[in-house]
């Protein structure tokens, strides 16, 4: 490859690329957090990325640099065919990554405990409990404290700790609102937990991150964050809804179907979430840690 051709090619290529990367920047929801969890995670990602460039950039520089300098046609470069050991170099290439990994491990340790999805988020407001049930192929959100439920639309108050309990009526799914942070698997016969908080109002995308069959691609929903006052108004209106989520209505809802229109139900049959979890037995005798993380909490009974 002639030098001129490869440099020109490289230049055009990089320009082309940067254009695309910059174009996509504005839509990078990961870097547009609307809650402290997402924000913390975004910062962690950026920090780790920066730390690793310490390892990556030298590799790129050396790969391209050595290739150019030590090509066979360059007689000027030194040629030491039997030079194959250097304690100094070995120490650097082993120890520098060890140090970086040590730093990252520290960040990981503190970050993972701090961002444990099972850890409630401290705030002044009373937490809002939401029970999430994944169906084939819709999302059911139950608000046990308000006796209302919605399908395919999650309405939330800002500045309020959100206390999610998740389960699935069928197969494994993963509940995720990118701008609020942290996804969590929803699994049948078990309940998982997720604690989030929104500190901005707005409408954000929600999705299913675990392939769950034919209707998987349709399992996106809107998470609408309102001010606490607006949220109370919404709750008040929701309770007037003519639709009720009786057992029969739930059974009809849980028949395989996609793109169910956004619906609000009130009232909701008592203990629905626990019944959905409890329809699959098999957790008797599981070890305590698993049990406490996976089983219905006593206080959940309505």
């Amino acid at each position: 490859m002639k030098k001129h051709n490869s440099y020109a090619l490289l230049k055009t290529f990089s320009l082309f690329f940067s254009a695309f990367i910059l174009a996509g920047c504005s839509e990078m929801v990961v870097f547009q957090p609307k809650g402290p969890v997402a924000r913390d995670e975004a910062l962690l990602i950026a920090t780790a990325f920066g730390l690793m460039l310490i390892v990556v950039i030298p590799v790129l520089v050396m790969a391209i640099g050595f290739a150019i300098r030590y090509r066979a046609s360059n007689e000027k470069a030194a040629y030491r065919p039997n030079w194959a050991n250097s304690i100094k170099i070995e120490l650097v290439v082993w120890l520098v990554p060890v140090v970086i990994v040590a730093v990252l491990s520290y960040l990981t340790w503190t970050g993972t405990f701090r961002l444990d999805p099972y850890k409630p988020i401290p705030a002044e407001a009373e937490p809002l409990r939401v029970e999430v049930v994944s169906l084939d192929w819709n999302w059911l959100f139950i608000y046990p404290d308000y006796n209302i439920a919605t399908v395919n639309e999650l309405v939330l108050p800002a500045h309020t700790p959100l206390d999610f309990r998740l389960t699935s009526a069928t197969v494994m799914t993963s509940f995720y609102v990118p701008q609020l942070g942290s996804q969590m698997y929803a699994m049948a016969g078990m309940q998982t937990q997720l604690h989030l908080l929104a500190d901005h109002t707005g409408t954000f995308d929600g999705q299913n991150r675990e392939f769950s069959g034919n209707g998987y691609a349709t399992m996106h929903f809107k998470a609408i964050v309102k001010t606490p006052e607006q949220f109370q108004v919404w709750v008040h209106n929701a309770r007037q809804s003519p639709e009720t989520l009786s057992m029969a209505a739930y059974k009809a809802l849980s028949e395989p179907n996609s793109n169910h229109p956004v619906t609000v139900y009130s009232p909701v049959v008592a203990g629905l979430f626990d019944d959905i979890v409890g329809q699959f037995t098999g957790w008797m005798g599981a070890d305590e840690t698993m049990k406490s993380r996976m089983q219905p909490q006593e206080k959940m009974h309505n």
Binding site: V30, A38, D40, E41, A42, L44, I45, A48, L104, L107, T108, G111, T112, L115, P117, S174, P178, G181, S182, Q183, M184, R209
Partner: peptide, 9 residues
């Protein structure tokens, strides 16, 4: 990094 994975998984 688990919290990062919560985002990218």
């Amino acid at each position: 990094i688990p919290p990062a994975d919560f985002v990218f998984h």
